[in-house]
Amino acid sequence: MFYNFNKIEEVKIRLRSAEGHICEVEESAALMSSFIRSMIEGFNEVTEVSLPNINSVVIEKVIEYMRHYKDKDPPIIKKPIISSKMEENTSAWDAGFIDADWNMVVDLMTAADYLMMIPLRDLCCAKMACKFKGRSIDELRAEYHIENEFPSEMEENLEFQHPWRLE
């Protein structure tokens, strides 16, 4: 096996976004994604991976995460979360990184799921759980445009079972 010890620049992986833009990331960082890893390991000399479901803004965000954690393990967020504030649940860097609007967090979570990046997906899940924590049913329905799908009979039944749930 031949190693090029004189190599100065690390191999870059080109990630092609849904819009066709190319975002480059160092291979060592990209390997955080099991999906990309399988592409690289499965096909020799692959340097470009198409990600048609992920836009370039999200890919850049994912790359930021990859680069930060390429040499270290992301912190594990304890379940259940102890606070609706992310900074009380995880590291300051993670909390700052995921401090984004709902749509970005959703897109990031979906991307992490697709890319098989469990720590990033977990971070997104925890962030969204923070948004749920302590919220009433009505608040959640209103904020996320969820229709009340339950027939009144079922509502009553649930109310009977858990009379405290609305308190």
């Binding site: 979360i81 759980a129 959640l140 329905r141 749930r165």
Partner: peptide
């Protein structure tokens, strides 16, 4: 997402949808 909530919060959320 819900795995980060505790069981009693989950019970409360059961009727969201």
């Amino acid at each position: 997402i819900l795995s980060y909530l505790n069981p009693f919060e989950l019970i409360s959320l059961q009727t969201v949808s």
